[in-house]
Design a protein around this nucleic acid. Structure first.
Length: 570
RNA sequence: GGGGGCGUAGCUCAAUGGUAGAGCAUCGGACUCUUAAUCCGCUGGUUCCCGGUUCGAGUCCGGGCGCCCUCACCA
């Protein structure tokens, strides 16, 4: 080895490897072979080659024992299957072999297939100029007939070889692979090259989304696109990403939900619409939350929330059969059966049966009882105080901080609650407040216990500002949420289409905000105007696509079903 | 934002407070059926960053950065 010049900077392994590969690229260029060429395309995919010759597989020949370094007497005679030249292309995954013979497994979008490169068969020019500059990671094209090796591996007997893209960075270790989560997420392109099971997850994701489209298109739903830039926050309760439009000089928000626009379309006469697209919520990250996530929202006129529960069972069952081949799934170690029918249980029954709250009936009718049970269930005193304050009409709701402090004191709490409740206008207001607290109790005690697919129904009015009131009990709405393994996957309801009721609900949202609720909907005047034009009776639903993909691909983290999950910039 | 864990060669991982190592990859050599190829040889380090304790720090302490888990938030 020549001694390194004294002025040369210290070189780490990566710099040295990349330097060597750049030198190979230059050498290729000098030899008249562009290392970034775009004049060679494959005529057949690697998987198609396998399919084509699968039936011709011979019995494997017993390998001859060889002493390392000893030269065989004569080269092997190789018999191509049909002699037809094939041109394939892909990434070289490893380069394995000797001076006169190289095995190079290739990977393309369809699968893997190995090249057999041999001095007896490869073009002499390619052998001299291309092969020595070939590294694992390079994109190559190769031409030659297919044959079976003695060990029974289908291979291309390479007669012509091109490096079509020289790779400068080394691939991760062929045995250790790429494990580091941070690198896998930040450099997903490497993850996808190396980890075939990751490719499989995202292929399934694509199949799921197209399956959803097929399912809905077959039922005469119209796919639409509605604005992602909103000037009013609505359709859900969440913190938005705020931005600004320069030409109009107005604040704008990335949408947190498409709901209110989709229902305007139902008013307009599109009786069945859906949209599959991104929502943005400026909130924390977790295994189930990414700030941008994909939601399917669909609306069907003349349907009820019960119809949509049935439709959801059918849709998920069909997707599971299509994508997983079964409805008996496993998610994060838990067996999950998604074949219909799924359990349907009201919030109140869930609190009683799953939350173990024996007096659930009382909880959902008496806010004072609900407050005590909520405290015992671990609901923060501040939330309880805020919810009870919201029941008071008018501006004088008392001081939130003072009330919270009072609610933390078991001796003072009953009197404080009583004082608030006495100022409620009527019994319905009491039951609405009790229901709201009951829902907080559900979250604290029962939510995690909804493991098998379960529709939770009859949501409290106060947490459902866009849902239709139940005909028999105006304190609850005809709404459901779908839970699997304690995670919310879908949310649907019969739509509120009474414009005056909707105005009252928006007003309640504004009131709740004044009471200290962090996330509420803005009053959407135009949406009320649309309802005044008249929306036919309709049911609508949103399904979290990322979480659905998690279920159908058995992934525990949302990051593993997002190609590029949000990361702090490097 | 709180709590816990992790961060060492391109990759996967070691290293009682005492000379920073292995396997793979790379590079050089041998080898015409490999598939974790094999054999011989050589390289390769800001131990995430800054500071401190110590005769001596990858290791202990403080601060920071990043990632993972968890709690909170996400009606």
């Amino acid at each position: 080895m020549p001694p390194r010049p004294p002025q040369a900077p210290p070189e780490n392994t990566l710099d040295r490897i990349m330097g060597e590969r750049r030198a190979k690229a230059s050498a290729l260029r000098e030899a008249g072979s562009d290392p970034y060429r775009n004049d060679i395309a494959p005529t057949i995919s690697l998987h198609a080659v396998r399919e084509r010759y699968a039936a011709t597989k011979p019995a494997p020949v017993e390998p001859v024992e060889r002493v390392p370094g000893e030269r065989p007497a004569t080269p092997d005679v190789i018999t191509p299957i049909d002699g037809e030249p094939l041109r394939v292309a892909g990434r070289v995954m490893v380069k394995r072999g000797s001076g006169k013979m190289v095995f190079a497994p290739l990977r393309d979008a369809s699968g893997d297939l190995q090249l057999y490169i041999n001095i007896e068969h490869l073009d002499a020019g390619d052998f001299a100029t291309i092969l020595p500059r070939l590294d694992a990671g390079d994109q190559v094209a190769a031409e030659g007939p297919a044959f079976w090796t003695k060990r029974g591996e289908l291979s291309i007997l390479v007669k012509r070889l091109w490096i079509v893209t020289k790779s400068l960075r080394p691939l991760p270790d062929k045995w250790g692979g790429l494990e580091d989560l941070e690198t896998r997420y930040r450099q997903r392109y490497v993850d996808l090259v190396v980890n075939t099971e990751v490719r499989e997850v995202f292929r399934k994701r694509s199949a799921i989304v197209s399956g959803i489209r097929r399912f809905l298109d077959a039922r005469r739903f119209l796919e639409v696109e509605t604005p992602m830039l909103h000037s009013i926050i609505g359709g859900a309760a969440a913190k938005p990403f705020a931005t600004h439009h320069n030409a109009l000089d107005i604040p704008m928000y990335l949408r947190i939900a498409p709901e209110l626009y989709l229902k305007r379309l139902v008013v307009g006469g599109f009786e069945r619409v859906y949209e599959v697209n991104r929502n943005f919520r400026n909130e924390g990250l977790s295994r189930r939350h990414n700030p941008e996530f994909t939601m399917l929202e669909m609306y069907q006129a003349y349907a009820t929330y019960t119809d949509l529960m049935n439709l959801t069972e059918e849709l998920v069952g069909e997707l599971a059969r299509e994508v997983c081949g079964t409805t008996a799934l496993t998610w994060d170690g838990t067996p999950v059966e998604v074949a219909a029918p799924w359990r349907r249980i009201t919030v109140q029954d869930a609190v009683r049966e799953l939350g173990g709250i024996a007096n659930a009936d009382e909880v959902f009718s008496d806010p004072a009882v609900a407050a005590e049970v909520a405290i015992a269930s671990g609901v923060p005193a501040a939330d309880i105080a805020r919810v009870l304050r919201e029941g008071i009409r008018g501006d004088d709701m008392g001081d939130q901080a003072e009330l919270t402090a009072g609610f933390k004191d078991a001796a003072r709490r009953p009197a404080l609650a009583k004082a608030l409740i006495e100022r409620y206008p009527d019994d319905l207001a009491r039951r609405v407040r009790a229901g709201h607290l009951g829902y907080l109790i559900f979250e604290a005690t029962a939510e995690a216990k909804l493991v098998q697919p379960t529709f939770l129904t009859q949501f409290p009015l106060a947490v459902s500002p866009l849902a239709r009131k139940n005909d028999k009990d105006p304190a609850v709405c005809d709404r459901f949420e779908l839970f699997v393994c304690g995670k919310e996957l879908a949310n649907g309801f019969s739509e509120l289409n009474d414009p005056d009721d909707q105005r009252a609900r928006f007003a309640a949202q504004v009131h709740a905000k004044a009471a200290g609720a962090a996330e509420t909907m803005d009053y959407d005047e135009d949406y009320c105007r649309a309802l005044e034009v008249g929306m036919p009776p309709t049911a609508g639903e949103g399904i979290g696509i990322d979480r659905l993909v998690m279920l159908l691909t058995n992934q525990a983290s949302i990051r593993d079903v997002l190609l590029f999950p949000l990361m702090r910039p490097e």
